[in-house]
Structure formats: structure tokens, C-alpha cells
Amino acid sequence: MTEAAAVFRETSADPVTESVPYSHLSLELGHLYMEDFAEGADRLVRHFTAVRPWADTARAWAAAALPAGKRPRISTCFLIDDYFSRLSTPAKLVPTLLDAAERAGLTIDYLARESGCALADPARPDRAGLAESVMHRLVESPPPGSNGFRPPVSRTGWLTNGRRAPARRTSAALDADSAWQPPAETEARGHSVFVDVELWDDNGPHRTWSCAFLAAVWQLARLGLLRDDGRAVLTPAPWDRDLPFPDDWDALPPLLRLNPAAPPFTAYSTCSVLPVRFLPVEHAVRVILGQVHVDADAVGQAVARAGQEKVTLPEGVVERTSYLFPPGL
């Protein structure tokens, strides 16, 4: 019989997973490109006017999903694209945006910069940005019959929901003798809807993350499932709306709490009201979310907190996200 060896470990060696507060629903009131803002205030008013009835529908759905008599906590948010282009400044754009929402009867509780989902925190330059952190958590789902020939996503920057069609062989004779095989979705229901998603490219001096990948990071942040060594990330910074907004996007915190009385930014579930042109992007987002290994402690905290409120959360992260695509938005 061998004697068991005792192992002593400092409790401080295990990072404590910081908890975050939860709303029942994070309601996104839109995501527009800088080109949309360039069309002026009337374009923004039309956007929010079209969003309003659908936002009301999402609120009613959230209330109906709760036990009788319980009032839902719903926070609203808006994501501004300052990552792919910067045609304006916060000082010019943000007040116009907030005014347009108010004219349509909507309030934006939280305002986020898309670059905050991509770049490292200036206050912590030693840490990776959110997008890179999520990239390291990708766990590809190998399709049935795969042989490991396909390079990993960490090398290619491409993620798929199934089996790609075989690459063309170098020998024409071999091609003639082998039958073509179509791509196939891993969990297809009857017929495949195959998606191959580009997560980033390295064409410039710095890596450029794709819109779909940043949108996946955005969803994980709204669900409260991102941590950095146990520490909560993309936490809201309070902002006094009576103060002027800066002229430089980098001078603006990645996530602002504009409404001091707003319910928490993070939520058990998300709903995004988006123009229909974002439908392909959000399909890609769901493919990505289905292959991210999220922090187990963060997931456990959300499930436990929801259980205390008698709210049942879907097991998968993807099922906690929903969308509305109003016509003509």
C-alpha cells in the first residue's frame, strides 16, 4: 500500500469569480453603422420610431415569461460602431442619438462602443482584448467523419457549423474518379444550412475582427458570461448626461450607464431589435456562440441567481439570445 501524498494549496491561487447583477432581459434598441448616422437626425428618428412597437413586444414577452405578479427588470442598450469607421465624434453623434430615441418614446440605458469588444483595456495594457480572450475559448465542434485535416480555427480564422466540401485535388485524374461531396451541417434537420464564418483577417498592420465575431462577444458581455481571471469585464461606467461628450472616441469609456436608475446591464436573456440586413451576421453569431467554452462559474452564478427567482434558463448560451427583425427598419 502506498501512502497518499498530501497537497497543500493557497486558496488565493484560485481566482474568485466575481458576480454581476442581472436583469431579466437586455433589450438592444439597434446597431447602426457610421454611414447610417451620416444620414442625419431624421434617419435616427425613423429607426427608433420603427423599433418602438417591437421593443414593446419584447417587454411584454419578458413579463409573460415570469411568475405571475413579478415585474421584469429590463435594461436597454445601443451599440455604436466606432471600430470599422469613425465618421463623426461622440460630441456630435451621441446627443443626436439620444434625442432621436427620446423623440420616439425610448430611453437608452447603456451605450457601448464596438471597439470595446475588440481592443484591450487602456487601463490594463498587459491584458488581451475581449475578442482575443473569446477567441482562445473557441472549441470547434468536429463534424462526423472528420479526420483532422482541416487546420484549427486559431490558424485559419474561419469557423463552421459542419463539414466543408472537400478541397479540389491537384490531380485531374483523381478528380475525375471521385464524386463531389457537398458541405453538410453537423446537426441538420432534414437539409443542411451550412455556414462558414470569417472571424478575423490579418490583411493590415493589425488583426481586424469581423462584425460577426464582435457581435458574439457583445452577446456574451450582455449575458454576463465574460471574466478576466475571475474579474467581471465591460462593466458600465456612470456618465452624467448633463456633461458634454468628448471629441475623441477613445476618451469615452467602452460602456456607459446613461440612466442612473436603469436595471443591470447584464441579463439572463437578450433580445436585439435589428435591421433585417443583420440577419446573416446574427446567424453567424449563433454559430460562434455554440462553440465558445464559457466560464463555468459565471454560468453557474447566472443559473443559481435565476433559480432563486424561479426563472428557468436554457442550458445553452445560444438559446438565451433572441432577435426581432422589423420590416423596413
Rank of each mutant, 00 (worst) to 15 (best):
E3N: 11
A4N: 10
V7I: 15
V7Y: 12
R9A: 14
E10F: 12
A13Y: 10
T17C: 14
E18C: 05
P21R: 12
Y22I: 06
G30S: 07
Y33E: 09
E35I: 06
G40Y: 11
V45A: 14
A50F: 01
V51P: 01
A58G: 06
R59T: 12
A68M: 09
R73G: 11
R73C: 10
I74H: 03
L79M: 09
L79R: 00
I80W: 00
D81L: 01
F84A: 03
L87Q: 09
P90K: 02
L93P: 00
V94K: 03
A101S: 07
I108F: 04
D109C: 11
A112R: 07
A112G: 04
E114P: 00
S115R: 12
A118R: 02
D121I: 06
R124G: 00
D126H: 13
G129S: 12
L130V: 10
S133V: 13
H136L: 11
H136V: 05
R137C: 12
L138N: 06
V139A: 13
E140Q: 09
P143G: 04
N147W: 12
N147L: 15
W158E: 06
W158G: 01
N161P: 03
T170W: 13
A172N: 07
L174I: 08
A176W: 12
D177P: 00
P182S: 10
E187K: 13
G190N: 11
D202H: 09
N203L: 15
H206I: 08
H206M: 09
R207A: 09
R207C: 05
T208I: 08
C211W: 03
A215T: 08
V217P: 00
Q219K: 08
R227F: 07
R231C: 04
L234S: 05
P238F: 10
D242Q: 15
D250G: 05
D250W: 02
L252T: 01
P253W: 09
L255P: 02
L256P: 02
L256D: 03
L256A: 01
P264S: 10
F265K: 01
A267Y: 05
Y268G: 03
V273S: 01
F278N: 08
F278E: 08
V287F: 03
Q291S: 01
H293G: 04
H293W: 07
V294C: 08
D295P: 03
A296E: 15
G300P: 09
V303I: 14
Q308K: 14
T312I: 13
T312D: 15
P314I: 08
S322E: 08
Y323T: 07
P327E: 10
G328V: 05
